[in-house]
């Protein structure tokens, strides 16, 4: 079984769900979903903390003065689009078309990178123009921890996907790496799910006041 797992899969072959064709793949699939269940609680704890402390801005600017919606809107659009591009990647994986899968994964990575760049720019602005820092108030601590945890997830996801792409660039899709790609795409979607709540709860609700 194990050597066969490394046999390259080409378009037109079976199976149509390469990510779940082996027991290892099935285990990864299930284990990763469970992990995401745990991550839900992790982010809920961070959201809860943020909601409890969001008005503790002391002398610093309150949320409605601090946040600008233009940048957040652009970031949101970028991340939502990157979710779609990783759907395209998995679509091509199911058709066993490795080259196209890599291409769409690559686009996902580029979008993720630009999201991360904008986030760093945003943080830089807050720190240097608004005096809104990690240590300036409980609001600052809670904001950077919540949004920063999400940013760290994005950064880790990028490292992960790039490693996968480089490692498998020459040998193509097989039953051994298909579950890895699939799980990485699940992770990426989850990051997007968290962001939907961040832009709603942190930025939009912050703006409403």
């Amino acid at each position: 079984m194990s050597a066969e797992e490394l046999k390259q899969l080409k378009p037109g072959q079976s199976p149509h769900e390469p990510e779940k064709a082996t027991l290892e793949g099935k285990n990864k699939f299930l284990g990763f979903w469970f992990f995401l269940g745990g991550e839900t609680v992790l982010f809920a704890s961070l959201f809860g903390t943020y909601l409890a402390l969001k008005d503790s801005n002391l002398d610093g600017k309150p949320a409605e003065e601090l946040f600008g919606l233009e940048l957040v809107f652009i970031m949101t659009m970028i991340l939502l689009t990157s979710s779609l591009t990783s759907v395209y990647a998995i679509y091509h994986m199911k058709n066993l078309d490795f080259q196209k899968m890599q291409l769409w994964m690559g686009i996902t990575v580029l979008l993720g990178l630009s999201f991360l760049g904008l986030e760093i720019f945003e943080f830089y602005e807050y720190v240097h123009h608004d005096g809104h820092t990690f240590t300036s108030s409980a609001f600052g601590s809670a904001f950077y921890t919540l949004v920063g945890f999400h940013g760290a997830h994005v950064a880790f996801g990028l490292l992960w996907i790039v490693t996968l792409m480089v490692r498998n660039a020459r040998r193509g899709l097989n039953l051994y790496n298909a579950p890895k790609y699939y799980v990485a795409s699940l992770y990426w979607h989850f990051i997007d799910v968290v962001w939907v709540f961040i832009f709603t709860v942190v930025y939009l609700m912050g703006k409403v006041g």
């Binding site: 979903w33 469970f34 995401l36 269940g37 745990g38 991550e39 839900t40 609680v41 982010f43 809920a44 704890s45 959201f47 809860g48 903390t49 909601l51 409890a52």
Partner: peptide
């Protein structure tokens, strides 16, 4: 499992607010 996570998540956030 996701909904179980969401359940715990809602409890947590509810308590915090």
């Amino acid at each position: 499992f996701l909904y179980s996570g969401v359940f715990v998540a809602i409890l947590t956030i509810l308590a915090m607010v």
